[in-house]
């Protein structure tokens, strides 16, 4: 039960607009770093420490920009982190209201099965490796599909266009190569 693209596009655009009107443009991938920081600090409490001016970390990336990531990991009840948790709740509610995702789909998506048969563990391995590359790339780029592509191009940011060019240049041939069926 996918929305008509015109209605869906206007609704999604309205959400982008609401975000920038009320707070700031949407972004997601930073929160993977924040969760890593929370976990690292739980395992090793010296990972994030308080200073006279704010927060810092033994990790140079967490400590950059005057420790803004370290501060977010130290106090996860902040806008960006709660935003991503709320996204999960919103998607969950939407999927429940449309009757939920069928069990076979939850095991492995149809396009995977069409190409590689009933091999859910191979699918999970590819999803894991894909997640690794996606987040490594997103952090190198300083943003992901949300922050760079959608929010960035919406604001006519040069970086958004550079990112989108790179992403589609790699994504289209990769998708065509892997998923020949479906």
């Amino acid at each position: 039960m996918t929305l008509d693209w015109k209605l869906g596009g206007i609704l999604l655009g309205a959400v982008f607009f609401a975000a920038v009107l009320l707070v700031k443009p949407i972004g997601v991938s930073t929160q993977f770093v924040i969760l890593d920081g929370i976990v690292a600090d739980a395992v090793s409490p010296d990972f994030i420490t308080q200073t006279d001016e704010g927060w810092t970390s033994t990790n140079a990336y967490m400590a950059k920009s005057s420790g803004k990531y370290a501060a977010s990991a130290a106090g996860p009840l902040n806008y960006g982190f709660v935003f991503v948790l709320a996204m999960a709740v919103g998607a969950f509610l939407s999927s429940m209201l449309r009757g939920g995702v069928p069990l076979a789909e939850r095991r492995a998506p149809e396009i995977w099965r069409a190409n590689f048969g009933d091999t859910p563990w191979r699918r999970y391995a590819v999803a894991f490796a894909g997640g690794f590359v996606v987040l490594y790339g997103a952090r190198l780029a300083g943003g992901c599909t949300s922050g760079h592509m959608m929010s960035g191009m919406m604001q006519t940011a040069l970086s958004g266009y550079i990112f989108a060019a790179g992403a589609f240049l790699a994504a289209v041939p990769t998708a065509m190569l892997i998923y020949k069926e479906g």
């Binding site: 987040l135 190198l140 780029a141 599909t145 949300s146």
Partner: peptide, 30 residues
């Protein structure tokens, strides 16, 4: 409220990486 990210070569390289993983997995972070 605007928040514009910096442009640098790594944006393009990171975009390439993200694109490859996005296509393989069918997911992006959000």
């Amino acid at each position: 409220h605007m928040s514009v990210k910096a442009a640098y070569i790594g944006v393009f390289i990171g975009g390439l990486l993200l694109g490859a993983g996005w296509a393989a997995s069918g997911f992006c972070p959000g």
